[in-house]
């Protein structure tokens, strides 16, 4: 650490960072790990291999992944439109994007459940026209997760698109590339790392999301019951061991998945000369 850099204070800030991460992240999480030590390995296995628990894991992770993928696709389009074009009401849309961040998730959940339930405005329309029921199904969970995770994608992709040098596109075109080739080979590879970050954020949020999901999900065991709900249910029944075991498993899987995404991101950046 150079002593004559313009902004000193490495020791102070690293000290703060360590204390902060310990108090806010590491200590609570390690408590969870220590709690789980009360369980024997057999008890632990018994809890998490329960069929209802397994299917809730399946529901939680599959809906989170699908929602993050869909949100990535649509979020990218929204970011593209907000960056590339000038149109009436752009600032209004800008403000609208952040809305799911600010809205209490339970409110979002209730609203979504109201309009997507079979008798609701959109729910009825969807059942009548294409015969798809959204509410009280995993599809409803995906719907809610898309709603809350789109801002993550938009806000991570937007700055990268803003900074993107238009002359790179022009260079591509002058070399004979079609519009599709310019997008596929020049624009997208440059935005992809940011999109991956957005995806990871959306996914992480989706896995842990509770408030907006429980109203629209219907919470049918084996069908649309998510892990966070199962944990709360267990806690309400004073089954602390059960809740701990599930929570720990969720923590480990989430950690592994985020690790995989980050590795992928590192690899993409390295391959594209950004590292």
């Amino acid at each position: 650490m150079s002593q004559n850099s313009i902004m000193p204070g490495f020791r102070l800030t690293i000290g703060f960072t360590v204390v902060y991460l310990s108090l806010v992240v590491l200590i609570p999480l390690s408590t969870l790990v220590f709690q789980s030590f009360r369980l024997s390995w057999d008890d632990y296995l018994h809890i998490i291999t329960n069929k209802r628990v397994l299917s809730s894991f399946y529901v939680s992770f599959s809906t989170a992944i699908v929602a993050a993928l869909v949100a990535s696709f649509f979020g990218f389009i929204v970011a593209w439109v907000l960056v590339r074009y000038e149109f009436f009401g752009k600032r209004f849309f800008h403000a609208l994007i952040d809305f799911p961040f600010a809205l209490p998730t339970a409110v979002a959940g209730i609203v979504l459940a109201t309009i997507f339930q079979p008798s609701g405005f959109l729910g009825k329309l969807l059942i009548d026209t294409i015969g798809v029921q959204v509410a009280f199904k995993p599809l409803g969970i995906v719907m809610a997760l898309i709603f809350i995770s789109i801002p993550f994608i938009v806000r991570t992709v937007e700055p990268v698109l803003l900074e993107f040098e238009a002359s790179m596109e022009e260079a591509g075109a002058s070399l004979g590339a079609t519009r599709l080739q310019v997008f596929n080979r020049i624009i997208f590879p440059n935005v992809f790392p940011a999109l991956l970050t957005g995806f990871a954020l959306a996914f992480a949020r989706g896995v842990g999301e509770y408030g907006s999901v429980i109203f629209i999900a219907g919470n049918l065991p084996y069908v649309s019951e998510i892990v966070p709900l199962l944990i709360v249910t267990k806690l309400e029944q004073f089954d602390i061991e059960g809740a701990t075991a599930i929570a720990l498993t969720m923590l480990v899987i989430s950690f592994l998945l985020l690790f995989v995404i980050n590795t992928l991101q590192y690899w993409v950046r390295k391959r594209s000369g950004q590292l």
Partner: peptide
């Protein structure tokens, strides 16, 4: 191009 516009990736 003036600032080369090389493909960074």
């Amino acid at each position: 191009f003036q600032h080369y516009a090389l493909f960074r990736h």
